[in-house]
Amino acid sequence: MERYRNVSGDSGVAAYEIGDDYVAVRFKTGVAYWYTEASVGVKHVAALKRLARRGQGLSTYISQHPDVSGGYERKDPDD
C-alpha cells in the first residue's frame, strides 16, 4: 500500500492501494477495507481513487456516503 499524504493532517487514513476496479484503504487503526466497483459502484470508486491520489478528503468521503462506508467488500486487519 502507498502511504496516504494526509494534506489536512488529521485524517484517519494511513495508506491506500488502487487497482483497476477497487480502492483499498488502511485506516490508522490498522484495519483495511476494500471498496470495489461491485460493492459501492463505479462512481464511488472513481471518487475514492481521485481523493486517495490527492491525499485529502478520503476519510470524509467514506464517512459521508453510507453506501460507501457500509459497502466495503472485504475487511482485513492483518493485511
Rank of each mutant, 00 (worst) to 15 (best):
M1Q: 08
E2L: 12
E2R: 14
R3Y: 04
R3I: 13
R3F: 06
R5V: 07
R5P: 01
R5G: 00
N6Q: 00
V7L: 08
G9K: 04
S11W: 04
G12I: 07
G12V: 07
A14V: 03
I18K: 06
I18E: 07
I18G: 06
G19E: 12
D21E: 12
Y22Q: 05
Y22T: 08
V23F: 10
A24K: 15
V25L: 05
V25F: 06
R26Y: 03
K28F: 03
K28C: 02
T29P: 01
T29A: 05
T29N: 11
G30T: 02
V31H: 01
V31F: 04
A32P: 02
A32R: 14
Y35T: 12
E37M: 15
E37T: 15
E37I: 15
V40Y: 05
G41K: 06
V42W: 04
A47W: 01
A47V: 14
L51D: 04
A52S: 15
A52V: 14
R53T: 13
R53M: 15
R53N: 12
R54T: 13
G55H: 09
Q56K: 13
G57R: 07
G57E: 05
L58W: 10
S59K: 09
S59W: 10
T60V: 14
Y61D: 03
I62S: 04
I62Q: 04
S63E: 05
S63C: 04
H65L: 01
H65K: 07
P66F: 03
P66D: 02
P66Q: 02
D67L: 01
D67P: 00
D67Q: 02
V68P: 00
V68E: 00
V68A: 00
S69F: 08
G70E: 02
G70T: 05
G71H: 03
Y72W: 15
Y72M: 06
E73S: 14
R74I: 12
K75T: 10
D76L: 08
D76S: 13
P77I: 06
P77A: 08
D78P: 00
D79V: 14
